[in-house]
Design a protein around this nucleic acid. Structure first.
Lengths: 152, 152
DNA sequence: AGGCTCAGGTCGATGGCGTCCACGGACTGT
DNA sequence: ACAGTCCGTGGACGCCATCGACCTGAGCCT
């Protein structure tokens, strides 16, 4: 993981569809060399996936909510997680320090659907309570960070 | 925005580096047709970007925090936003309903860096108070949703 | 020191891909 | 019926991905 790998990661964070030839030009190596490096970044787990970032409204998901979950004292965390995983509306799931064990980011089409989701969450065994905040607008999301430090 | 466009979006959400030829095979059109459709999805703002999804730990960002911001009653929201935008650690920024006007997702290398970030946030004009929750682990993040409904 | 080994690069070749263009069929409104 | 428009196909051409052969420098053992 040297400076060139960092540049490659940074370039691909900015535009995942760059050709190997273009990447090669930008970092000053040949295309096969870049091909091999990117392959190693992928199989080494540094690059997990390449995704198109989609405007949620355009695919009928206009409502974003952030939901804190308080767990039942007796509940099994793994079961709760499994239940969350089966709800496709939950885009992100963080296990948190604090009273609320989980913080979920959910995306649905309408407030009515959000209501249904919250009901389902509250019914989930192991969930003691939920606290929902609605995002009025998303200023930005998943902005890539400049990769300053040459990480170990 | 028909069923084929939806498939294209779904395919590109799963793997943004698919070739046009491969996309064409999957949706049953020719490559130029797919090329044109994807171009329209991009310029129409449906597809905003293609990004490589990177394991944050691998680039020295092991600490994820979610920070609620309460605004000063007198503060100018745009100025606050502008200040946030200049902090690269803030990956996402939502404008929320509720007491806390913003919810930020920040990613830093160490707890010490998080502390510095929180100090900077509290010093920012227009910010009355902050409330930080630390993510102990990320179960998943930015999982693409299946695109069921044929959105208008 | 000399030579082995290995990681990681360049170069060259070839088949597939991206992309431009001209053409054609189905709908639509008149 | 006709013309216009939209959206697709097929062909052509140059660039790209990818493979194999070879090169080079660092580290190490004898």
């Amino acid at each position: 993981m040297d400076a060139i790998d960092l540049s490659l990661v940074e370039l691909l964070q900015g535009n995942a569809r760059l050709s190997y030839a273009e990447l090669a030009r930008q970092v000053g190596l040949s295309a096969p060399a870049v091909h091999e490096r990117v392959g190693k970044l992928e199989s080494g787990g540094v690059v997990r996936a390449y995704r198109a970032e989609v405007e949620p409204e355009a695919i009928g998901l206009g409502v974003t909510a952030l939901i804190g979950i308080v767990e039942d004292s007796g509940g099994d965390t793994d079961d709760v997680l499994e239940a969350f995983r089966r709800m496709p509306e939950i885009e992100s799931c963080y296990f948190m320090a604090g009273v609320e064990s989980f913080l979920l980011k959910a995306r649905v089409g309408t407030i009515a659907e959000l209501e249904q989701l919250i009901v389902r969450l509250n019914r989930t065994p192991g969930v003691a309570s939920t606290r929902t905040g609605i995002a009025l607008s998303t200023k930005w999301e998943n902005r890539p960070q400049p990769l300053a430090r040459p990480a170990t």
